[in-house]
Design a protein around this nucleic acid. Sequence first.
DNA 1: AACGCGGGGTT
DNA 2: AACCCAGCGTT
Length: 343
Amino acid sequence: MAWYRDNCRQLPWRSDISVYRVWVSEVMLQQTQVKTVIPYYIRFMETWPDLKDLAATGLETVLKTWEGLGYYARARNLHKAAGIVVRDMGGIIPDDYKGFKNLPGVGDYIASAVLSITGSKPHAVVDGNVKRVLARLLCVDAPVNHSAAHKAYKAIAEKLLYEKDPGTYNQAVMELGALVCTPKRPDCGPCPLAGECCAYEKQVTDIFPRRIKKKKVPTVHIAAGIVKKKGKVLITRRKLDGLLGGLWEFPGGKVEPKESSEQACIRELREETGIEAGNLQFLTRVFHAYTHFKIEMDVFFCDYISGRVLLNGPIDHKWVSVDQLHQFPFPRANLKFMELIRG
DNA sequence: AACGCGGGGTT
DNA sequence: AACCCAGCGTT
C-alpha cells in the first residue's frame, strides 16, 4: 500500500473519481494497455461527461469514438447498459455486486474493480496482472491462461484482500504487476514483496506464472472491392454481433482455393450485395493480425456494372462520397488503406 | 469449460 | 514471431 502511494501513475481515471468514470475506464482497459486507452478515454469523457449523455446518443456515434480500440462488443454493451440505468433505474448505477454485475458487459472483474475503488466494497479483482503477481508470490502452479484456474486465483485474492481499503489494495496489486512484476524480466530489486516472494527466493521468476501453449494462428486471404458509381463508393455494415459487429467496411470476403483475388472480389460482391462489378484495379495488399487468425487482404477499385443492391449478410449499405468515409466507424484493417482511396 | 472477440506494445 | 494486456458473453 505504501509502495502504491509513492509509485502509482497519474492516470485520467484516477482523478474526479466517480462510478461512471471508473466504469468506463475498466471497460476500455479490458485486454488493452494503459497507453492505448488514455487518448480514447479522454475523448470519450469530453464527448459524454455523464452517463445520461452516453445514454442519449446513438450506437454508431459510440462506435465511431471506439474505432480502432477493438473488442467492439465492449462499446455496444456499455451503451446498452447506460440505456438500462438511465431508463429503467432512474439513472442510479447499482452499488451492489449482483446488481451491477447484471448489467451487460459487466463481469466479475469490472464489478469488483468499480465497487471496490468507488465504494470500498470488499471484492478482490483478478486480472492478468494479479494472476502474475500471485503466481510468483506463492509459486502457484495453475496456468494463468486456463479458464479452470481462475477460481483458484480468485480465492487467493479474496483471502489476501485488505478489507480496510479494498480499492487501493486492488489497484496496488495491479500497479505492481504493471510496473514491477512484469511478464518478462521483473524488476525485483525495488519490489516491496521481494522478501516474501516464493519465486524470487527460489530464483524462478522466469517460469512463473505457468501458462499453457496456444495454437498458432492461420492466415486467411481476403478480397475487398471499392465499388465506384457516379462519384460515390459502396460501403456495407456488418451485423451487430460477432467479429467487428456494427462496423462499416468495403464489401468482400474469403478467397477460395484455386480462385484469384479478382474472382473472389467479384463473386463476394455478387453474393453479399447482389451487384455486378468489373474493371478491377488493384489498389494495395493489407496485412492485419487478429487474436486467432491473420488476414492478407487484396483491395481493388472496381466499377459498378449492373444490378440493384440486395444484401445477403450485411445489415445496411450506403453509397457515399470519399469525403464522407470518415464519418463511419471502420475496422483498423480498412483504415490502413483509407488514405490511398483519394489518390 | 472452451471459444470468439481487436489492436497494439514488448521482447 | 511469440507473447502479453485493468475480461466478457455465448455455447
